[in-house]
């Protein structure tokens, strides 16, 4: 029974993907259909027109095996090894430096803003 519920809920989630895909087609949105589906589900949950229990076990089942679904795409790297040869090797340090910068800016800014708003709260409490 538990597995039948999971399968049904995955089908419901797939429904959101299909709706997202057709909205993307009709409205010519630059967003991927699955992201539109994610936003629709989020909106439906927040507006209380859709209940968490209707998809919860299916979504946790899917998320617990998440890496499995992009294995087929990662295996495709076998056809692109040559890109990282020669000059292409530079792509590795470029990616690392850009990741470093991203982490630096995002962590510093969110910490700064959090400390600022905590201070403000302290002042207003006095």
């Amino acid at each position: 029974m538990k597995y039948i519920i999971i399968v049904l809920q995955i089908l419901v989630l797939y429904g959101f993907v299909l709706i997202g895909n057709s909205l993307q087609d009709i409205l010519h949105l630059p967003l991927p259909g699955s992201i539109i589906g994610l936003l629709l589900l989020l909106a439906a949950l927040s507006l209380k027109v859709f209940r968490l229990e209707w998809v919860e076990s299916g979504s946790y089942f899917l998320l617990s095996y998440l890496p499995l679904y992009f294995i087929p795409a990662t295996v495709g790297v076998m056809n692109y090894g040559h890109v990282f040869a020669g000059k292409g090797f530079l792509l590795i340090p470029i990616t690392m430096i850009s990741t470093f910068l991203t982490m630096w800016i995002s962590s510093t800014l969110s910490q700064l803003l959090a400390k600022k708003s905590a201070k403000k709260e302290e002042v207003s409490c006095k």
């Binding site: 991927p32 699955s34 936003l39 299916g58």
Partner: peptide, 10 residues
Amino acid sequence: LGPAIVSLAI
């Protein structure tokens, strides 16, 4: 992959 992305809403 699609339904898994939608699941991230949870």
